[in-house]
Design a protein around this nucleic acid. Structure first.
Length: 314
DNA sequence: CGCGTTTGACCCGCGC
DNA sequence: GCGCGGGTCAAACGCG
């Protein structure tokens, strides 16, 4: 892939001699005059200075351009590795027979790249290649996000307390996972179209995978109650670094860490030990990689950082 | 009695 | 056209 489609490498470093000349502050010239120096000497000196400056800037620009190309190269390499990795992961995650519904499989394709962050806004962040391959109907799909929730393996309930009220309307055992999948509808508002599927991870039975479809058309009214109520689990959003911190505009993947609230103050400790498990690490890596590849804000920040760095060198 | 959950039946899309 | 499998419906059931 051409990295120029991601980052505009034309840095416009103002190496045009005419423009450089124009940028010379007028007061410099006037100060030199005030020192009683003959004008021709000043002009000559100025020209020499500017020529030197131009040479220096040109050389620096060349150097920076090389650096940038190396960065882009590294980025592309990293990205291709990431794509390979996520592709492998996705194949492992989905059923080998790939007999799933079209919508489901396309969701999984998206989740390979963006961990189920398919919506109209993030669509623009996908590559040209991807957008060409994607069916048109993708653009009108409801927002889908995926949340990983760590629970105790012995806990057989498929309840993810996320601050909303859900009504379970079905449960099904799917082919690719022996654990049943529960179907929930948002019951807080009758008109709310959001649905939620909760299923245990095939790889790690202690991890619940909650897939949200659609967006709530009402405020999260019960979150406070959920968080403060002593019954059941408590949601500790901050206990795990999540991609939302990178993507402020569209926090699409949030890793929740649910711990038993009856436990008391040792929750954090146990949380930390759980986070250190390889599975969770893998999820975190995927989240970060997702942000790297899909988040336009992150890319913009990266470009700004590089540009700032380059400008700082002057 | 009302509300939420359970669970078997049914619907529908997709692949062969 | 048929079978498979995911998603949904709705009657039955349980609990407060």
């Amino acid at each position: 892939m051409d990295c120029s489609s991601w980052i505009n490498t034309s840095l416009d470093l103002n190496i045009n001699p005419r423009r450089v000349h124009e940028d010379v502050p007028k007061e410099v010239e006037s100060k030199l005059f005030s020192l009683g120096m003959p004008k021709f000497n000043v002009e000559e000196e100025c020209t020499n200075e500017l020529e030197e400056e131009l040479k220096r800037v040109t050389a620096e620009n060349k150097k920076l351009g090389e650096m940038l190309s190396v960065v882009c190269e590294n980025y592309n390499t990293l990205r291709s590795h990431l794509m390979e990795y996520t592709k492998k992961n996705g194949e492992k995650e989905t059923s080998p027979t790939s007999k799933k519904r079209k919508s489901e499989s396309s969701n999984n394709n998206n989740s390979i790249c963006v961990m189920g962050t398919n919506n109209g806004n993030s669509e623009s962040s996908s590559t040209d290649e991807e957008s060409c391959k994607k069916p048109r109907e993708e653009t009108i799909k409801p927002k889908i996000s995926r949340v990983y929730v760590r629970t105790e393996a012995s806990d057989t309930t498929l309840i993810v307390k996320d601050g909303y009220q859900w009504r379970k309307y079905g449960q099904k055992v799917t082919r690719d996972n022996p654990c049943p999948r529960a179907y929930f509808k948002c019951s807080f508002a009758p008109s709310c179209p959001v649905k939620k599927k909760v299923q245990r991870s095939v790889d790690d039975q202690s991890v619940l995978v909650a897939t949200y479809e659609g967006e709530h058309n009402h405020p999260q009214a019960s979150s406070q109650m959920e968080a403060t109520s002593g019954s059941g689990r408590s949601v500790t959003l901050a206990s795990v670094p999540c991609s939302a911190s990178l993507s402020t505009a569209t926090p699409t993947l949030v890793t929740l860490d649910l711990t038993k609230s009856k436990g008391s103050n040792n929750n954090f400790k146990s949380t930390r030990t759980k986070v250190d498990s390889p599975k969770v690490k893998q999820v975190l890596v995927e989240q970060m990689a997702t942000s790297l590849t899909t988040d336009p804000n992150f890319r913009a920040a990266l470009v700004a950082a590089i540009s700032g760095r380059l400008l700082h060198n002057y």
